[in-house]
Design a protein around this nucleic acid. Structure first.
Lengths: 151, 151
DNA sequence: CCAATACAGTACTATTATAGTACCATTTTT
DNA sequence: AAAAATGGTACTATAATAGTACTGTATTGG
């Protein structure tokens, strides 16, 4: 099964929580309790999200976290990207290690994988955090493959 | 990073190899050598693919494996499904464990996740094995989210 | 009919990635 | 100055994955 990590799942829960009250600062402790995860885990995730530019943070006694942008301007790709790195289905597709793919002709697959990753990326980029906050906002995504060369 | 397992990656290499010569039977040993993976690993994968109905197999001295359907009729979802189970991004989305998601209001996320999983599924279902065999066959996938309720 | 070959199934081990935790530093408010 | 809260890093435990081995069954060929 293609899956995202459990932490990323939590991360989305956190972001969804913050999206419901975007103006106020929320302390990690409050967030952890609200979402239902352990405080150290929440801390870790909040740090990563802040570092990824998705959250603004303020230190000190009255500190906490808040969304850096409006919920409409944050997509699933942003969140997943901040927590798991760039979206890609294979190592090949993300161009992390260049000289890894030394399989003779099998590497014809590479270009196709990149396209598939792109499709998944697009699907994830099409869902905003704002849409996640409402219970059953319909999201219509059309995946239409074409066998025709564009050339 | 959202990712498929390494074994699944190998599996697709195997399927791609078989798709280039769909008529003849290919022994596991031949396949392992051609794709560049260890024999036991190839055996494991071939068994899983055969069990998933994607390969026909024949035992005995002249035995081997061949695609059960034409390359045009096999998609990435079929292969990934055979090797990793149903495609889904979260446990929540695949309905494996029902009573796991006891988070009060956060579970509004659930329906959206299922839709996203569906989108990924569609993207993967839109790519056939035949398309993977040719080096750079363009695949156009349109992911267009809509904020409008369908109701 | 026997032996060799190749797939079928299962179970086990090792490795790797993930999840989770703890610690110390830094900043801000009271 | 002290308390509260984030920032960064490193470490440990757990779980998932990858890989291997073994036994069983079917088919071909001498």
């Amino acid at each position: 099964m293609i899956r995202i990590g459990k932490l990323t799942d939590y991360g989305i829960l956190i972001m969804t929580y913050l999206a419901r009250d975007p103006e106020r600062l929320h302390a990690a402790q409050e967030i952890a309790q609200a979402v239902g995860i352990a405080l150290p885990t929440a801390n870790k995730l909040l740090k990563m999200l802040a570092r990824g530019g998705l959250l603004d943070s303020q230190r000190g006694t009255k500190g906490g976290y808040a969304l850096s942008r409006q919920p409409e301007a944050i997509t699933m790709v942003d969140i997943i990207g901040a927590l798991e790195g760039p979206v890609g289905l294979t190592d090949c597709g993300t161009a992390k290690q260049p000289g890894n793919c030394q399989r003779e002709r099998s590497c014809s697959v590479k270009a196709n994988w990149q396209r598939i990753s792109q499709a998944v990326n697009d699907a994830l980029a099409g869902v905003t955090l704002a849409e996640m906050t409402v219970p059953s906002q319909p999201i219509r995504i059309f995946a239409r493959p074409s066998a025709q060369p564009v050339t």
